[in-house]
């Protein structure tokens, strides 16, 4: 139904005004395709729930709820009416902690991913466009980084950079950009072989112009999918690094909750509410990103349906 409509719009309207309607039509087609995938909807709902909870958290959680000196609950007590998910070793509500923790975990996950995709995308685009020595050198650098063991490198980086969210973000970005770089390079090479690039070159476009105006728009959908999938692994990496005690000790995140649960003996006490809650939060969010990313991937490239 939609394809003929798009064709007619293009044919009938003058070139200058034709740009908008096909774009909306494509968007509508994308939304319709996405809504046909139940797993994608489930993923999106999971993500929206956490995003909303993280955003509105300050309206119902007061700073003194999270202040260890003012917490009033029993210490590491199982769930009760007032504390639906029990309390931590300081008598704070685990429910409040896990909602507040979503803020740090999601923020670090998203910012680290933006940085990962920026580094990986730039290197991949340049390596794919300049196929001579520059491209070869960049791919060699990528291969060296792929070989490096990511967690030991991330640990070393965040230790050397000092405790804090920014060093964790940098550590995640530096250890995870290689996948994006390879993906973007492969796509750039594929796009570069198509005639419209040659046309642009014939019309006298410079290399940066071709890269940004012609290649980048064709690579963007792929970058979008890859970054949504990367957010999931960045959140896992954040949880791992903060679990090891590398995060900012004053910030509540899911990894830091698991760190204090482990350090304060929640394991020996059998405080399942304290151990389960942050892990389930991580599970739901990472799964949400994975399901959403895969659904978008399938809608954008139906050939992938059989593969994933």
């Amino acid at each position: 139904m939609t394809a003929p409509t798009r064709g007619r719009t293009r044919a009938e309207e003058p070139a200058g005004e034709a740009a908008a309607p096909p774009r909306y039509a494509a968007l509508r087609r994308f939304a319709r395709g996405y809504l046909r995938r139940p797993s994608g909807i489930v993923g999106l709902v999971m993500l929206l729930a956490f995003a909303v909870a993280a955003l509105v958290a300050p309206s119902f959680i007061h700073p003194h709820d999270l202040d260890v000196t003012r917490a009033s609950g029993a210490l590491m007590a199982p769930p009760t009416g007032a504390y639906p998910l029990g309390t931590d070793e300081n008598g704070r509500s685990v429910l409040f902690l896990v909602i507040w923790g979503a803020r740090a975990s999601l923020f670090i996950g998203v910012v680290a991913t933006l940085m990962t995709v920026f580094i990986g995308g730039t290197i991949g685009l340049v390596a794919g466009h300049y196929q001579g020595r520059v491209g070869a050198l960049l791919m060699h650098v990528t291969d060296w980084f792929i070989v490096l063991p990511s967690l030991p490198l991330a640990i070393a980086l965040s230790v050397v950079l000092g405790q804090g969210a920014s060093s964790i973000i940098i550590a995640i970005a530096i250890t995870s950009w290689t996948g994006t770089a390879r993906l973007v390079r492969a796509q750039t090479l594929a796009v570069g072989a198509r005639p419209f690039i040659e046309r642009g070159r014939a019309l006298g476009a410079s290399d940066p112009q071709i890269m940004v105006r012609h290649v980048l728009p064709s690579v963007l959908p792929l970058i979008l999918v890859s970054s949504i999938l990367t957010i999931g692994s960045a959140i896992l990496a954040e949880a791992t690094l903060t679990f090891l005690g590398l995060g900012d000790p004053t910030t509540v995140s899911w990894g830091s909750m698991l760190n204090s649960a482990f350090a304060q003996g929640a394991v020996t006490v059998g405080a399942w509410w304290y151990l389960l809650t942050p892990g389930i939060a991580i599970l739901l969010v990472v799964m949400g990103f994975t399901l959403t990313g895969r659904a978008i991937e399938h809608v954008l490239d139906p050939r992938m349906v059989d593969r994933a």
């Binding site: 999931g232 791992t240 698991l258 059998g270 151990l275 991580i282 599970l283 990472v286 994975t290």
Partner: peptide, 21 residues
Amino acid sequence: LTLWSVPTFWLGLLLLVAFSV
């Protein structure tokens, strides 16, 4: 997909509680 979406050390903590403690 489920096992991929959780940190490995968290699985370790759960197994530790369930089967060791």
